[in-house]
Design a protein around this nucleic acid. Structure first.
Length: 639
RNA sequence: GGGCCGAUAGCUCAGUCGGUAGAGCAAGUGGCUUUUAACCACUGGGUCGCAGGUUCGAGUCCUGCUCGGCUCACCA
């Protein structure tokens, strides 16, 4: 047995053939991995060298207009080729995006630079290698050793083939790098979503190789519009959105800063952190869950407009909307309040969406989401608006009910009974008749008992069902109940951009109370497509009150709420130097990108999303609790 | 954690009632000097996710497990 020095390559007929080709190329050229390839710059491209994209963009128009099922006339070809001939030779590099189509003594193949493809044409009697070991080397022989996916650099003149395609007639070429692994299927790409996410490079290659006939033949504007973005286009758009948001802030006097990722205290949001250890200092550090408290220290220090666009880390579950590390844009503006921030956020998103997509409306699944107008509702209004069990309760929902704590709990209990008991009734039934009977029975029971109790303001049994912890202060329980109701009743319906305002104060420890109603915070969250996309508020700048709020959070922590916010005494001290009134916001960039690229999973808009390691089969006990843990609405980092 | 679906050649998939493992692409050989999902001919390629069970006989039926997807639940 010889030593296996390529354990990362499966051994099969495909890889063996490629390896044999590589050995022969190495023998013939002396160097199968040359260090550089000098390209021309006929296109005067931004890169300073001709790329396949720049060549296609610059010279594609020489192709005669295509007519279905017809070849261009000899006159058309002659005219195009006469013009192209004056350009002289072009040198470009790329990956063989198809297996060579060899026809005896000539061959066609396409090269790709990841974005565009350009056809090259090689003739046996008219091609020489640029590289050799001092002796004669047959270019055709070297060409025969090329595999789908290899990189080569070519030199030759541009021309248009009989079928009308812009191509390079190659006179000389250089072998640049080998693809030892077979390329993804040219028609299907990579269908396994796991491989797409785990091996993003293969996904991106597949996108550049995939032959999309509708797209190739320029089927027209409408078809183009309906087409799904490729993986590459998703990330190009992501880059563009981020660039536009930065530009929007930069133009308005915001300064970008970087605050610590590794922090001694993980605070500024309600979430559990990742823990690590600094050896030299011998202290534990936490990956930040939010930059909020650092950014506000900077507002104290005189940065009136400041932003940070970077990763937050939360040690929580993974879902289609949650990745353990995610990108958040957080910014603060002195002298502004929550209303100004909502206006600003709305304008910023609208502008960025237009610049990234060309329109204010985007298609997301079956929905069309319009960034042209954002709705604003208080949390209680939202509950009332989407309370759709009037038929069951027999009367219209009245917002004022939510002003009574006990009744609020019963409303939550009522809702849960409807949702869960009906689901259970449907599940335990053995047949359709039984099922409809069970559902009717449950409905009647809910209406006769739970609803009546709820309306009456009933007993405490409902509360103990929702929160058994007797030490929790009543206001906190009520706050959680209202929020719980909101999440169940309203959140799934918030498809069009909607600001939810007037959050209960106890769940908003960093925001100012509303002057109009001290029980609510001047805080909002932006919901789009049922997802929490942003979270902002009038920043609490009274150090004494902030200290008290932190202490309340510490109490919640002691009662077992692991996500309650951590006291940060240095931050409170910073506030004691005086912070101007200010508004702040955190925007979940990944979720915005999901909306603008029509991707249902956050893993499709993160290049390398976190996944369980491929090889390591987890032990049974590890497998279970990693996922059962709580998942917070991570876009809502600000709070 | 529950429910549903899936795992078969390098890739994408088919495989009927339980009876010798299939196609297209890719690969190898030969042919073809303007093809384009090139074409024509021939050839090689399989631990049917893993472990048990039923059976004369299992890709197929049963049980358990692993991995993945969707979904529900959990969720500041």
């Amino acid at each position: 047995m010889t030593e296996n020095n390529t354990p990362f390559i499966e051994d099969n007929d495909q890889t063996r053939a490629r390896r044999e080709h590589l050995d022969k190329i190495q023998q013939l050229t002396g160097n199968a991995y040359p260090n550089k390839f000098r390209r021309t710059n006929l296109t005067a491209s931004a890169e300073g060298e001709d790329t396949i994209t720049s060549v296609v963009a610059r010279f594609k128009h020489h192709e005669p207009p295509r007519i279905e099922g017809q070849r261009p006339t000899p006159e058309q070809l002659e005219a195009a080729n006469a013009e192209l001939k004056t350009l002289g030779d072009v040198r470009v590099g790329g990956r063989l995006s198809v297996p060579p189509r060899v026809m005896g003594k000539a061959a066609f193949v396409h090269l790709s630079d990841g974005r565009e493809r350009l056809q090259i044409y090689v003739r046996r009697d008219d091609v020489r290698p640029m590289q050799h070991r001092g002796r004669e080397l047959d270019g055709w022989e070297l060409f025969g050793l090329l595999d789908h996916g290899d990189f080569i650099g070519v030199e030759g003149f541009l021309f248009v083939t009989k079928t009308g395609e812009l191509s390079v007639h190659v006179r000389a070429f250089e072998f640049l790098a080998k693809a030892l692994l077979p390329m993804p299927d040219k028609m299907h790409g990579i269908s396994d979503p796991e491989i797409r996410q785990r091996q993003r490079y293969a996904d991106l290659i597949a996108g550049s190789l995939k032959i999309d006939k509708d797209n190739e033949t320029g089927a027209g504007g409408e078809a183009q519009e309906a087409r799904e973005l490729t993986t590459r286009e998703v990330f190009e758009r992501r880059s563009k959105i981020i660039r536009e948001m930065r530009a929007f802030l930069d133009e308005r006097g915001y300064i970008e800063v970087e605050t610590p990722m590794l922090t001694p205290i993980a605070s500024g949001a309600a979430a559990r952190p990742f823990k690590t250890h600094h050896n030299a200092l011998d202290i534990d550090l936490y990956a930040r869950i939010a930059p909020e408290l650092y950014l506000k220290r900077l507002v104290v220090g005189g940065f009136e407009r400041v932003y940070e666009l970077n990763r937050n880390f939360r040690n929580e579950g993974i879902s289609t909307r949650h990745n353990p590390e995610f990108t958040m844009l957080e910014f603060y503006c002195a002298y502004m309040d929550v209303n100004g921030m909502m206006d600003f956020c709305e304008e910023m998103l609208r502008q960025s969406v237009i610049k990234a997509t060309g329109d204010t409306a985007v298609r997301f699944g079956d929905e069309e989401i319009d960034f042209g107008k954002f709705e604003r509702l208080t949390m209680k209004q939202a509950i009332a608006k989407y309370w759709d069990y009037e038929e069951l309760s027999g009367e219209k929902f009245d917002v004022s009910w939510l002003d009574e704590p006990l009744r609020t709990f019963h409303m939550l209990h009522f809702w849960d009974s409807i949702e869960f008991d009906l689901a259970e009734a449907a599940q335990t039934a053995n047949n359709d008749v039984e099922r409809s009977l069970a559902i009717e029975f449950t409905k009647q029971r809910v209406k006769d008992h739970i609803w009546k109790e709820a309306k009456a303001g009933g007993s405490l049994t409902a509360i103990s069902k929702i929160d058994r912890n007797v030490d929790t202060p009543k206001e906190v329980k009520v706050a959680h109940a209202i929020e719980g109701l909101f999440e169940r009743v309203a959140e799934p319906h918030l498809v069009q951009p909607t600001f939810i305002t007037d959050f209960p104060k106890p769940i908003s420890p960093l925001s100012k109370a509303s002057p109009a109603d001290p029980s609510v915070a001047e805080r909002f969250e932006l919901y789009i497509a049922g997802m929490e996309c942003a979270n902002g508020f009038s920043e609490l700048n009274d150090p004494v009150e902030q200290y008290e709020r932190f202490k309340e959070q510490a109490g919640a922590r002691e009662r077992g709420d692991e996500e309650a916010m951590q006291m940060d005494t240095d931050y409170v001290r910073a506030l004691a130097y005086g912070m101007p009134p200010a508004a702040g916001i955190g925007i979940g960039i990944d979720r915005i990108v999901m909306l603008l690229t029509n991707r249902r999973s956050i893993r499709d808009v993160i290049l390398f999303p976190h996944m369980r390691p491929a090889a390591a089969a987890p032990k049974p006990e590890e497998a279970t609790d990693a996922q059962a843990e709580s998942i917070d609405a991570q876009a809502g980092g600000k709070a």
